[in-house]
């Protein structure tokens, strides 16, 4: 039997900002066709996890493989939906321009945007009901509309693995339903989706699998296995404070240990 590498494989990943650890020793393998919600309290490292997978943040230790390859090689197979606040919405581009950006990976950097690219972009906008707004400057949209533009862009990337950072944050109810439908639809088509989510109550119905994160990976698995009071308490409760405190000291020092004493 041919071994098909999983869409996402993370091994012993440690990330820290300014010597404060954000992620510590995360190990996880996500299977193809999963719809995974990443939940955890504020500052649990959810966004950092996505950014590290994307290669935006450099890890201090461990590695990430996407379809069995380092990120750089598998880059065209990944679609990314950043947090809405991460871009400048006054930027001089129209809705269509933004969605077309999703096609740049396919078009090649020098080639012109083809008719086909435009058609695909337009279809993606249709799917999120944003077609009528395609000529608008992106600042003139509501929060939910902006989020849908981002989703359309991710769709236009035609990726196999989608990483979404808080797509439900600050959107209206209609957009929320639309996004959920879209996620389901993508999953049906065999795509893998990893979605950072801030609201525990809705996570249960939106996703199939849950990744409980609080600096460490507390649990990962099917919804019924992971959505248990015990594990949630562990993720959100204060029981592991020593863990984070001490890991903080250790990660702060890990850097010199690596360069200073390789034997450790």
């Amino acid at each position: 039997m041919v071994h098909i590498p999983p869409p996402l494989e993370i091994h012993d990943l440690t990330v820290s900002y300014d010597r404060k650890p954000v992620l510590y020793g995360v190990d996880v393998v996500v299977e193809a066709g999963s719809l995974v919600g990443v939940v955890g309290p504020n500052g649990a490292g959810k966004s950092t996890l996505i950014k590290t997978i994307m290669g935006i943040v450099q890890p201090n230790g461990g590695w990430v493989k996407i379809f069995g390859q380092p990120y750089r090689k598998a880059v065209t197979r990944v679609g990314y939906v950043p947090q809405r606040e991460s871009v400048d919405w006054d930027f001089p581009v129209s809705v269509m321009d933004v969605v077309l950006m999703g096609r740049y990976g396919h078009a090649g950097l020098m080639r012109r945007v083809s008719k086909r690219d435009r058609r695909i972009a337009s279809e993606c906008l249709e799917k999120v009901n944003m077609q009528p707004f395609s000529d608008r400057q992106i600042g003139n949209l509501s929060g939910g509309q902006q989020q849908r533009v981002f989703l359309a862009r991710a769709l236009a990337q035609e990726s196999d693995l989608y990483l979404m950072d808080e797509p439900f944050a600050g959107v209206d109810a209609a957009t929320e339903t639309a996004i959920v439908e879209l996620l389901r639809d993508l999953k049906e088509r065999g795509k893998t989706l990893i979605v950072v989510h801030h609201d525990l109550s809705s996570a249960r119905e939106y996703f199939d699998k849950l990744m409980l994160l609080n600096m460490r990976l507390v649990a990962y698995g099917e919804m019924e296995e992971t959505f248990t009071p015990d594990l949630l308490q562990k993720t959100y409760g204060g029981r592991l404070t020593i863990l984070s405190d001490v890991a903080g000291q250790a990660a702060g020092r890990s850097e010199f240990e690596e360069e200073g004493n390789p034997k450790l």
């Binding site: 994307m54 935006i56 880059v75 065209t76 871009v87 950006m101 020098m110």
Partner: peptide
């Protein structure tokens, strides 16, 4: 003109630019 697309995407959304391999 030559690097328009790269300049546009990296300026607008560096995360996306990276995911496109720019």
């Amino acid at each position: 003109i030559v690097f328009y697309r790269v300049l546009l995407v990296t300026s607008f959304d560096a995360g996306l630019a990276r995911s496109l391999g720019m």
